[in-house]
Design a protein around this nucleic acid. Structure first.
Length: 281
DNA sequence: CCTTAATCCTGGAAGC
DNA sequence: TGCTTCCAGGATTAAG
């Protein structure tokens, strides 16, 4: 469920709390949530967190370089995907962090604070890389442009390549990175486009509309702290508020805010989809 | 090419 | 009330 707005919200929360802090200790409670080397040093122990990047729904914590700060190399990094139920929370000094079975990784910070990765369902995980370049080459190169940065021409090229339903293409992280089930449904409604029309039937004018409405939608969602359906909370533990602004997602059978017809639910590319058959064509 | 289903997994909700 | 069943979904993979 954490899609781009939720992950961006977490990134901003961490930027204000763990960025610039040194990791003095790491506790790995569950080894199988880490992919790649999982020695403490590979989980940034002894390093200062110098960057927190995001591409689509994924985050990267970057540590200080192994050879010292000025030799031009980037430091080791951890890519974090929250999956459906993952959370990345900061607990200030004096606030007890959870220690239950779903708490998988804890980073102890120099100032007494703690960063905690918790994920009951474990669809999420951590991937360790020796450098940002390695992360880019081995993992992030497979993703499309970030949904907040993609250009109409890049999106259009991605959509032209396939006859899959438009919704399926927009969910494909290789086409555009960051959209999930909630925001795709909301975006298609905002553009009055049918989720089932073939992606390559999109005119350039429609792709341009998709890009501008996508930016507006995601920015508004970020401003509201993201959507909390059940599990999502920001780095500070607070729930989002954008779920109250959803116009189609989760509103099957309720009336369309434009035409009052009941919203239709169907499966597209295996995913529950809600849309207005009258307004979205 | 495309879709569907299975896979990973837990917990909340619905059904009996 | 208590049990079972279903369902939610991000990403990947295999099968049809």
């Amino acid at each position: 469920m954490p899609e781009l707005p939720e992950v961006e919200n977490v990134r901003r929360g961490l930027a204000g709390t763990v960025l610039g802090r040194c990791v003095v200790g790491v506790t790995l409670q569950r080894l199988d949530v880490v992919h790649g080397p999982s020695r403490p040093a590979d989980l940034l122990r002894g390093r200062t967190i110098t960057r927190i990047d995001r591409l689509g729904k994924q985050l990267a914590l970057v540590g200080t370089p192994r050879q010292g700060p000025d030799d031009g190399r980037t430091g080791p990094c951890i890519c974090i995907h929250l999956g459906m139920t993952g959370s990345l929370r900061h607990y200030p000094s004096g606030v007890p962090a959870p220690q239950d079975i779903h708490t998988h990784v804890r980073w102890r910070l120099e100032n007494g604070g703690e960063l905690v990765f918790r994920d009951p369902r474990r669809f999420g995980g951590l991937w360790t890389y020796p450098s940002v370049e390695a992360l880019d080459n081995e993992r992030w190169s497979r993703l499309g442009q970030d949904a907040l940065a993609i250009t109409p021409r890049r999106l259009h090229a991605g959509l032209q390549r396939t006859r899959r339903p438009l919704k399926a293409a927009l969910l494909d992280q290789a086409v555009v990175a960051g959209l999930g089930n909630i925001y795709v449904d909301e975006l298609l409604f905002a553009c009055r486009l049918s989720p089932v029309c073939p992606a390559n039937a999109c005119q350039i004018s429609q792709t341009t509309l998709l890009v501008s409405r996508m930016r507006a939608l995601l920015k508004r969602a970020i401003r509201s702290g993201g959507s909390t359906l059940r599990d999502y909370v920001g780095a500070d533990g607070r729930a989002g508020g954008f779920q109250f602004r959803h116009k189609v997602y989760g509103r099957t059978g309720e009336s369309c805010i434009l035409c009052k017809d009941p919203l239709t639910r169907l499966q597209v590319a295996g995913r529950t989809t809600v849309y207005c058959t009258t307004c979205q064509v």
